[in-house]
Design a protein around this nucleic acid. Structure first.
Lengths: 245, 245
DNA sequence: AAATATTTGTCCGTATGTATC
DNA sequence: TGATACATACGGACAAATATT
């Protein structure tokens, strides 16, 4: 047996069955030029054609699904998905989520560069509808802040809803720039450090609401200089977190 | 039942079972701080604890496996893997096989913003060793260019080695900034548009070599202004690709 | 070295939930 | 409303690879 035969043996036979199926399905999609919205054959059909159990086939399908290539729905079938890098960057940041302190400062830097860098494009593609959506998020933040002010403990859990709104604000801000990769990175970066900020001070919240109000005002006035200043203020102005307890 | 209960219901119960398990396993790994080489409990054990069938559990495991987080071996178990970007690259290649034009311009914009944004940090952390490594890459590019010049067909395959060196150059450039996230993004982004440039013109190569030589010179002279100019020149100067055939 | 236990790999059968017509 | 097609989920069984004694 030649070396070539052996290597192909290894790559074909030694490989786990579900991975072979995974590859074959990807090839099938490329070969048949399936586009988003198109459907794969049914599980039964494919497992029959490929000569594998439905179980193994499903493992391959789930692997395809988690990467965002397809999505399967009961009663419908397995549908090719739109191009989407969200999962990629999400798993990128998952792997880096070790020492939180360091990762936090790293993500902040990346966010700062990206958001300030794409500021002009965000401004140019801004629409009244997007501004309205942004306003919604700020309202949520503001409501969360006021609710918080009533309570005693200034650090109890409530970061969740506040940071969801904060994340949404920034994702919406760049949504019209029509840059999938930028949006994926921003989403991923946000999902990453939201994780680390469950407990937070009132003073931080208050400052944060102010910053976002500034940004919205600039957008409403369609004043780029003011927008730019507000964005820089958002990222560059820090302050001592004074523990109120 | 309160609103909170309902919302958590929706986010927990509405999700497919294997995805819930997928999340729970990821959380388990983070919570228990499992490191590469560590093992997950056995399939039997986990399916019992989580109260799901072994089949569903395996779908979640395979989803974790395809992303390179774990790898499972018969008779051994399920092992946490070392961080590996291979999967990410592979996945990008696949996804970008479609509408290359649009994605290409998107990645170029992101690269431009990131690299120009982190220029100062790259400059500040530069060392003679890094400059030597950069020089190596430029040498490879230059050699590739000169070799190319001898041949007849000006577009035949050789992008591979050239772009490997090009990518390496930019990755090395920021390697000392100590920002894993930045480096991961740059690697991922580079790996993705390398794909589209297998066949390329001599004129492009020549210009590209020049650009990188400029950057190195500025670094050697430790002249930030010159470095900045060279970087802007690298990203902002385009030119007509003149087909030589 | 050989037998045995452990663990994942693969298959089958069946019942349930969901979307479409 | 009912029928059909489809993915979802469960449980059990045996094979194959590895580790242990």
């Amino acid at each position: 047996m030649s070396v070539e035969d052996f290597s192909s043996m290894k790559s074909l036979k030694n490989r786990k069955l579900y991975l072979q199926v995974y590859d074959e399905l990807k090839n099938y999609i490329i070969q048949n030029q399936l586009k988003p919205g198109n459907k794969l054959p049914t599980e039964m059909e494919m497992s029959a054609v490929l000569g594998v159990s439905r179980n193994v086939l499903r493992e391959a399908i789930k692997a395809l699904e988690i990467t965002g290539i397809v999505s399967s729905k009961p009663g419908v079938g397995i549908i090719i998905q739109e191009f989407n890098t969200d999962f990629l960057f999400q798993s990128l940041f998952y792997n880096l989520a070790g020492d939180s302190e360091r990762v936090l400062s790293q993500t902040l830097k990346v966010r700062r560069i990206l958001e300030l860098g794409f500021m002009q494009e965000a401004f140019d593609t801004m629409t009244p509808e997007v501004i309205a959506l942004l306003q919604e998020q700020v309202d949520v933040m503001d409501r969360a802040f006021r609710e918080k002010q009533k309570k005693k403990n200034p650090t109890t859990m409530f970061g969740h809803e506040f940071y969801a709104a904060d994340a949404a604000f920034h994702i919406i801000l760049f949504s019209k720039t029509d840059n999938d990769i930028l949006n994926s990175i921003i989403s991923a970066v946000w999902s990453c450090d939201r994780y680390h900020k469950q407990r937070i001070q009132r003073s931080y919240i208050q400052k944060s609401v102010e910053k976002h109000v500034n940004i919205i005002e600039a957008l409403k006035e369609h004043d780029f200089q003011k927008f730019s200043d507000a964005m820089h203020y958002h990222f560059d102005v820090f302050y001592k977190i004074d523990f109120e307890t």
